[in-house]
Design a protein around this nucleic acid. Sequence first.
RNA 1: GGAGAAAUGGCAGAGUGGUCGAAUGCGGCAGUCUUGAAAACUGUUGAGGGUCACACCUCCGGGGGUUCGAAUCCCUCUUUCUCCGCCA
Length: 422
Amino acid sequence: MLQVAYIREHKEDVIARLAKRNIDASQMIDDVLALDEDRRALQTQLDNTLAESNSLSKEIGNLFKSGKAAEANVLKEKTSQLKEDSKGLSEALNEKADALNELLYKIPNVPNTIVPSGNTDEDNEEVYREGDIPKLHSDALPHWELAKKYDIIDFELGNKITGAGFPVYKGKGARLQRALIAYFLDKNTEAGYTEVQLPHLVNEASGFGTGQLPDKEGQMYHVTGDNLYLIPTAEVPATNLFRNDLLSESDLPKAITGYTPCFRREAGSYGAHVRGLNRLHQFDKVEILRIEHPNRSYDALTEMVEHVKGILKELKLPYRILRLCGGDLGFTSALTYDFEVFSTAQDRWLEISSVSNFENFQANRLKLRFKNSDGKTELCHTLNGSSLALPRVLAGILENYQTEDGIQIPEVLIPYTGFEKI
RNA sequence: GGAGAAAUGGCAGAGUGGUCGAAUGCGGCAGUCUUGAAAACUGUUGAGGGUCACACCUCCGGGGGUUCGAAUCCCUCUUUCUCCGCCA
């Protein structure tokens, strides 16, 4: 969430930049500032009341010690009024503070100045393109047909044991999936990311920390018996690793990578867009995450983008990079680059990675801070990205690497798969 | 799952109703000494709110309660440890 102090000092700029998301935030911002003013006024009143009551208590203690019980009892009566006052004040204060927080939770991050304005994915700005789109033979198939033909992914079996959106990978399909995970993790650790294995269920506090709660509750699977949530992305447990941390400047940057399955309830649309691997309730993803000094976070974003580019280049998949427009930008992000692989057989682009700088938006809610060189406490910047999301990479490989007599395995993956062709 | 014990500052660890935001040690930072370093010595060193700055307020695992007053007493939740049971 945004910092109130920042809103106070940059009110017009905040409103102007939020307009890129096609929202008029002026009313919300005014409300925030009004609530904050009320909150501070109540805080001052409460503090004064408590201060008075504290000093009376001290006096009472001293009177009792010197045997002046009668005088002490007189003072005691005085404190009861103060007690009632402070009770009322603190209730009023909590109410204001809750209202303020609730409102702040609803305001998305302020987009970076280079974010293009716009409404839909049509308005995203293509900033880079690389790789040749292969010319496939005339009866080339989409990946869901290939999956059936070579018996490597079984969607029906998944329906039987769980439901739609939970595929079963089989034989060389399962092995290819495992190869990709290992390959991605190796690339990430080579680039300096520390590998972690994370829990796949998180508690409520973690859901709040990264902003899935309270608003996007319906997007996660909820284990009601224990009040835990299945993670929608490794971002949730990985970022919460640092919740409530106060780092020293020399601890920065932190760079971690982890593989997890991801669970998402969202229903999605229909037809080809959700066909096969395009949209699933459970899928695998390798994530990269950084905690950075505010001065360095945009350099870090560039490094992350370059890193993902390197992987796609090695896999020899045709891809493009989009700078997301305000309307398409995630709630917590200040700047996001999406990577899309071209699926030749489907004749469309498939999103396979999303790399974002959240600046201090997540860190504020997480209370993730560091001591700067002046000894002052400052919020860190957080960034994360997929490196990479498995299903669509798999779809892209199956479709783009198909030949009349089987599916070729990209060269860099052969050491991981142990076979060259499906 | 059952029985018991515990949770205090970056770490270790004292503190059982007012003099406690909290002894002491380690660590960190600054200084003295030194060609430099180490050692030794001196000083300093939690977070949040609030203020122009002070004052002041809150925080001793989380939440609630008793009391004029709570790190300290009570309730509750969570976590950790020990023992028993079960188990990949």
